[in-house]
């Protein structure tokens, strides 16, 4: 009797939860479906859900008309490049904070975090003018630099919280055995920290991929990543729903998959250890 009641409750909760989940996911699902419709069918009234003539022509057309893969590649270069560059600078910094903390480590860590809270418009004009004068406007290298700097505090913090879980005695033992600083970080710390570094890498690629203030303001036709490229659909010509959907689906799908893999690290990375 009790078991039947539990089962009925399960069934009700299952129904509610799936309904809510599908409603929240619906805009993404709808975009993906529309990307396989013809432009006429994309605006058909009443809308068709699954029973339409499936086609891949939008994907081909988006590439032909606007060199989609240039922008896709820009997104890859900018997000992966800025994350790797950030790790290169952050690993040594996080090592010293986690294993050789001094009196001021705490202050430095908090100060780094505070730079993340600087609103981007506070520095928009100088960065824009400096980029103009140094010829960095609409260049991938310029965007890599800016995204490295805005995500550096998050990278340092995430690595710091992961490194702190590694017992310092192991590093000390290697120091006793005469390993230099470079060897200690490269051959003792890094192998133990691989899971933490991988999560940091993943989350920061996601953040950089979706960054849409600096990429919109500092890029034009050449270096525009997908965030800025998709924005060009805000002033379209003619019917464009299916093409917008195809461009959006390709822009979102890879990062959505990465995001689903990194969902556990998301809380840790974005709350700076304030929620456990």
């Amino acid at each position: 009797m009790a078991r039947a009641a539990t089962n009925r409750r399960m069934l009700v909760v299952t129904l509610i939860a799936w309904t809510v989940g599908i409603v929240i996911f619906f805009p993404i699902l709808w975009t993906a479906l529309t990307s396989f419709k013809t432009e006429a069918e994309a605006v058909a009234a009443p809308p068709t859900f699954l029973a339409f003539h499936w086609t891949l022509e939008n994907y081909a057309e988006v590439q032909q008309r606007s060199d989609y893969f240039l922008h896709f590649w820009n997104s890859v270069v900018i997000s992966v490049g800025s994350t790797l560059l950030g790790l290169l600078v952050a690993v040594p910094a996080a090592w010293s904070m986690a294993f050789v903390p001094g009196k001021r480590t705490r202050d430095v860590l908090m100060w780094m975090l505070s730079t993340k809270m600087l609103p981007p418009v506070g520095v928009l004009i100088p960065i824009y003018l400096l980029f103009r004068d140094f010829g960095l406007l609409d260049s991938r290298i310029g965007l890599v630099i800016v995204l490295t700097l805005i995500n550096l505090p998050i990278i340092v913090w995430m690595l710091f919280t992961y490194f702190r879980e590694i017992p310092g005695e192991i590093l000390e033992a290697s120091r006793m055995d005469g390993a230099g600083l470079r060897d200690e970080i490269l051959f003792v710390l890094l192998p133990m920290a691989v899971p933490g570094i991988a999560s940091t890498l993943l989350l920061n690629i996601i953040l950089a991929w979706n960054e849409a203030f600096w990429t919109l303001n500092l890029s034009a036709s050449q270096s525009a990543p997908l965030t800025a490229f998709i924005a060009s659909y805000s002033s379209p010509e003619g019917l464009f729903y299916a093409k917008l959907s195809a461009a959006s689906t390709m822009a979102v799908a890879p990062i959505l998959v990465l995001g689903w893999f990194s969902q556990k690290q998301l809380v840790r990375g974005l709350t700076f250890g304030a929620v456990k």
């Binding site: 805009p27 822009a251 979102v252 998301l266």
Partner: peptide
């Protein structure tokens, strides 16, 4: 959690 990973320009235009 999916909407969190959609870039702002895509979600706004969709």
């Amino acid at each position: 959690i999916a909407p969190f990973f959609v870039m702002p320009t895509v979600s706004a235009l969709v």
